[in-house]
Write a protein that binds this DNA or RNA. Structure first.
Lengths: 212, 212
DNA sequence: GAGCATACCTACTCGTGCGTAGGGTTACGC
DNA sequence: GCGTAACCCTACGCACGAGTAGGTATGCTC
């Protein structure tokens, strides 16, 4: 008898994106465990069984979120930092893209990122992404140094890169918590710490000749 | 009639510590939500109601863990970095103490720290601690610069300090995940990045004169 | 050695939230 | 215009885990 249904019927691909949007939002607000599938479904404007039908288990749903956001970010960065530029310019553009991304998705991405670290099932996924970033940064540093005829042990390079990535993530958190802050400016600051600090260090200057 | 009881009766203070030990362990393994009070109680060798009687709610228990570990760490750092030393020496000793602490408590502290970031109720507690650290680091940098007759805007100082603290936490995570790594060496590396990078930067050298 | 506080337990209640069973309706191909 | 597949719903079952009720034993004090 059909009093026109309040809901539109939509193709699967669209609904999936809506669900992912809702999931990202709710997961980031509440955290993985505290988030309920019911709330996600409601926020997506759809009923729970649909979520299960399309995206599966709660864990699978979370992984899907992680995956989508992760890919987006990586593409944003990769797109900005073309490999044929000089290393410092690549680093700068990469940082700009990164902070721009975080600034745009604020509560979305950053908190999702914060979530994933805590829960065992997802820590691995995250670690992989971070590892890729570290590798890229280490690559840039290495490239820049070789261009100047210097050479540095791989491990040192990696640890320094790790520290830089950590500092960057930390500033991203700070940015996510300070809506008034300017992503561009944050990127500049990070660039300064990174390029100058790492540069100095890897050029052979050390604070204290390690006695061990 | 008393067939000697399998459990020893112990004074409250002792049991509380045992419970906290167990709680830290379980929380760090499983995460706040996934951890069950039953498991914590069992691991502490005691029954659940005792936990509630002594340490209260699950949330309160977690806060107690956070508090104990946090205080321990802060004391370790404060004890090492006496305020009458020159800034670089203070920073160095602080870092050594910090990484030493993380190295000693590995899965305990680091993962607990990772946990607290994700869950709203505790994020604040953590933020406060981090803020204190940032303040201290910023103070060191400021002190060092004033000694050389330079002056830097407060916000810049704070953001740089924030980045340094972030980098340090990041390396602490790395350390916690690499049991074979040497805390001392990690501290040296961090010291290099921190002191040289921040020093350069705050001395007025900039990578690119910010055009905004 | 009686009284009382403290340490300690077993065994429940009850809410919450994941995941599903089973069924209805719209569009699209033929 | 009719079958069939895709979209979508209202319920529920069921496990798990936080927190509690109510009681027992042990040691300490006077």
């Amino acid at each position: 008898m059909s009093t026109a249904p309040a809901f539109k019927r939509l193709p699967r691909a669209v609904r999936e994106q809506q669900m992912l949007d809702a999931a990202v939002k709710v997961f980031s607000r509440r955290g993985f465990h505290a988030a309920s599938m019911d709330e996600i479904a409601e926020d997506a404007g759809i009923s729970k069984p649909m979520v299960y039908a399309y995206l599966g288990t709660k864990e699978e749903l979370f992984v899907a979120c992680l995956h989508r956001e992760g890919t987006r970010m990586m593409q944003a960065i990769a797109g900005a930092a073309a490999p044929d530029l000089p290393a410092d310019e690549r680093l700068w553009r990469g940082l700009r893209a990164f902070f721009g991304f975080v600034g745009a998705y604020r509560d979305g991405w950053a908190v999702l990122y914060r979530q994933a670290r805590g829960e065992q099932p997802f820590a691995g996924e995250l670690a992989t992404m971070r590892a890729r970033l570290v590798e890229v940064v280490a690559g840039m540093l290495d490239h820049a140094l070789r261009a100047e005829g210097r050479e540095v042990a791989g491990t040192d390079l990696e640890v320094v890169a790790y520290a830089l990535v950590g500092a960057t993530e930390s500033l991203a958190d700070w940015l996510a918590d300070h809506p008034e802050a300017d992503p561009e400016k944050t990127a500049t600051r990070m660039m300064n710490v990174a390029w100058l600090g790492a540069g100095q260090l890897l050029h052979g200057v050390t604070w204290r000749p390690a006695s061990d």
